[in-house]
Design a protein around this nucleic acid. Sequence first.
DNA 1: CAATTTCACTAACAATTGTTAGTTTTGTTT
DNA 2: AAACAAAACTAACAATTGTTAGTGAAATTG
Lengths: 183, 183
Amino acid sequence: MITLAAAQLFREKGFPSTGMRDLAGEVGVEAASLYNHIRSKAELLQEICFRVANDFNAQLMEVEASENLTGLEKLEAIVRFHIQMWINRLDEVMVTNNESKYLEEPYNGTFLNERRVYVRRLEQVIEDGMRKGNIKKVQPYAVVLTLMSAVRGIEFWHRTKKNISAEELEENMVLHLVKGLKK
Amino acid sequence: MITLAAAQLFREKGFPSTGMRDLAGEVGVEAASLYNHIRSKAELLQEICFRVANDFNAQLMEVEASENLTGLEKLEAIVRFHIQMWINRLDEVMVTNNESKYLEEPYNGTFLNERRVYVRRLEQVIEDGMRKGNIKKVQPYAVVLTLMSAVRGIEFWHRTKKNISAEELEENMVLHLVKGLKK
DNA sequence: CAATTTCACTAACAATTGTTAGTTTTGTTT
DNA sequence: AAACAAAACTAACAATTGTTAGTGAAATTG
């Protein structure tokens, strides 16, 4: 899939300095031939970013709907999903995080807006858990910022996996980031 | 200062897509005139990245040397310094984090190596605190990854400061990230 | 087999990139 | 005022960028 090769290159070299000739080389074809399959370089970035955003949104919606979970359990499910996305789909997720600023308008605006909405919904999960659940008193916005960024550390783990296994990493992060919020 | 204008542009537009003509415009001069003051675009990035790295190293050395502090207090001092760097010198710190991959060799290699050493020294602080101090049993590497990345969330806070003050943000992050590690 | 679509190729385009050469203007020191 | 250094300017360079046009081969359809 061209999109996945693009994600890998965009992650490694950055979007602006990944040339269509680089991508073509990775796919095993001449640069001009790519245009039989894609419309533009910009479109590749759009597909990567919005697909990832969609997957995060879908999971959050699912968690919001599960009424058998406590606030803290919901938060844990979300954090675990973030961790797994960073571990299993590093290229796409990193491009979504680091290169989305190169989206052209109106896509960049739409993307930033979707992110704001996502953050707000996550804050809501925390507020609910604080009010009538088992989450201790905190500033929801600060916690969301911290959670969503902390998992970005997985980027560095990926470079030298030997240190610690994926499962250990996940458990340690959940312990550090979520269990500490228990009332 | 040209370097600071460069840091701002590199952060906003990314290093590869910041042109010398963009930078010149920001400084109020023609592109060619910049070369009376700097040697190359690449050198600007080097100056930014290694100056920030130096400042982090200096502070860590200072903390390591203060023998009146417990392990947890050392960790707190380090985390607070990270937070303040992200708040007060966002441009430079973000460029150091996000654009350092565009450093040419051998600078990129040197930079990555310095970072590895920094992480290892931070792990050592945690291990010491665990063995003979007041830090609970955790995987030091996982904690360091989490701590160093969590503060990156400040990037988003910077865009819309209204939400919460810098002091509140710092206290919430320290509470979330450090106090939870107390044995 | 014939017709048609799919897809890779070569060649080229306009625009933009970082940087240099050479010249003129500005500001400081004798 | 003369001499010198610092720093601005214009013009241009080779290289690289994403993309299009046009052509022919391969694969799929009738």
